[in-house]
Design a binder for these strands. Structure first.
Length: 218
DNA sequence: CAGCAGATTGACT
DNA sequence: GTCAATCTGCTGC
């Protein structure tokens, strides 16, 4: 089927206007089913199909790092043009990979929370030795470890050669997508309840069971 | 410059 | 279900 040895059809990188269109919730939703590609040091393709994301809507979103137009060394990347990688470090051990959305100066981002491994699984296992494929990339910290994403990817252009997103399959239908409250943002008050987390219904690779909802205290 | 909480994970009761 | 690991950036003294 393939002369190149790859079992996965290659596809075009998403263009700038996918990210800069000015509707971050649509960017988040439309990222589902797309393929996140992070080539290995050898140049081999390592990739995953995006199955879970969260939108962070900038200055008015209490859960966003850029809430209240907070410009710091960390958040500066969120102000870059859509289609830039925003990678930050949390809990002293985990990286989180985001896609900046919107025009330059508008600090929106979409956190990629889970992917389904598609290419280069042996590279992922080397970096993250786990038993089942479901443990490989089913969480924002997990996928960064498996794909080799660290803070050196912060600020990277997603139209460049180091990390990008491809349009690998037809846009998912509304019925194939579920939404709910974002994870780990209980501190964000009313914004913690906004249904800005999106995932592919029935995926085995999302970060937690679909029926599980976080109970917020107080 | 000390204190602390965080867009998490994995090990354990 | 609970909780420690581990460190950076932000806050306030």
């Amino acid at each position: 089927m393939s002369r190149t040895g790859s079992h996965v059809r290659r596809a075009a990188k998403l263009r700038r206007d996918f990210y800069t269109r000015g509707d971050t919730l649509a960017v988040a939703r439309d990222l589902l089913g797309k393929r996140l590609v992070v080539p290995a040091p050898t140049g081999e393709r390592v990739s995953g199909r995006i199955v879970e994301v969260e939108a962070y809507l900038g200055v008015g979103d209490k859960a966003a790092h850029s809430y209240g137009d907070r410009r710091t060394a960390r958040t500066e990347t969120m102000y870059k043009v859509g289609g830039t990688a925003y990678v930050f470090f949390v809990y002293g051990m985990h990286h989180q990979f985001n896609v900046v959305a919107g025009p330059e100066g508008v600090p929106h981002a979409v956190l990629v929370r889970a992917v389904e491994p598609t290419e280069g699984v042996e590279w992922m296992l080397r970096r993250r030795p786990v038993r089942g494929p479901r443990e490989l990339t089913s969480g924002p910290g997990k996928l960064c470890q498996a794909l080799g994403i660290d803070r050196t990817y912060n600020g990277e252009d997603l139209l460049g050669a180091r990390v990008w997103v491809e349009d690998a399959e037809p846009l998912l239908a509304d019925e194939e997508i579920a939404s709910g409250a974002r994870v780990g943002v209980a501190y964000a008050g009313v914004d913690a309840l906004k249904p800005w987390r999106f995932w592919v219904k029935g995926s085995e690779h999302i970060s937690r069971k679909e029926k599980t909802q976080l109970r917020q205290n107080g």
